[in-house]
């Protein structure tokens, strides 16, 4: 339902992102999804990986500033209009979406949208009431 996103501070410098990706790659950590929020001065890398705990420790050991953020992974059909349905439900419940990004899983043949909201539990309830499935960690990580 609620999965762990790894958030990493990325200084605005060529090569910085490559360094971080390299650390995870070398340790055999697989990225399921990623997004980068960039401002004029810095970036925030957001990752969904198969082994979040391991990734966190590795990045901390490499002196990266990292945090774990619980986010929602909502399973949707890979069809036009699917995302709009989810967002409409949240909007009508007055739940503000801080950010989001999407990915498609080869194994499951499904699309997922990762959504960051203030109150995860309430968002899950709203979505469930409207028959929208929130993916569990197992489904995403495996």
């Amino acid at each position: 339902m609620i999965i762990d996103q790894i958030s990493v501070f990325v200084e605005n410098n060529p090569g910085r992102l490559a360094d971080i990706a390299g650390i995870l790659g070398k340790a055999g950590i697989d990225m399921r999804a990623m997004s980068i929020a960039d401002t004029a001065k810095f970036g925030i890398l957001r990752l969904i990986v198969d082994k979040p705990r391991e990734a966190l420790e590795l990045l901390r050991a490499a002196e990266c500033v990292v945090s774990v953020t619980p986010v929602l992974a909502v399973s949707i059909k890979d069809l036009p209009g699917s995302l709009a349905v989810v967002l409409r439900v949240l909007a009508e419940a007055g739940i503000n979406v801080e950010y989001g990004y999407a990915f498609v899983s080869r194994k499951q043949g499904n699309a997922y949208v990762v959504i960051r909201v203030e109150d995860n539990r309430r968002a899950v309830e709203c979505l469930a009431q409207n028959g929208i499935k929130v993916a569990d960690g197992k489904e995403i990580y495996e």
């Binding site: 958030s7 001065k41 925030i44 500033v65 990292v66 945090s67 801080e98």
Partner: peptide, 18 residues
């Protein structure tokens, strides 16, 4: 230098602290 205390996954919060 960035610190865990100053960091957040949202740009809004980091920008506010900055």
């Amino acid at each position: 230098e960035m610190t865990p205390e100053m960091f957040s996954d949202t740009v809004r919060q980091v920008a506010a602290r900055e």
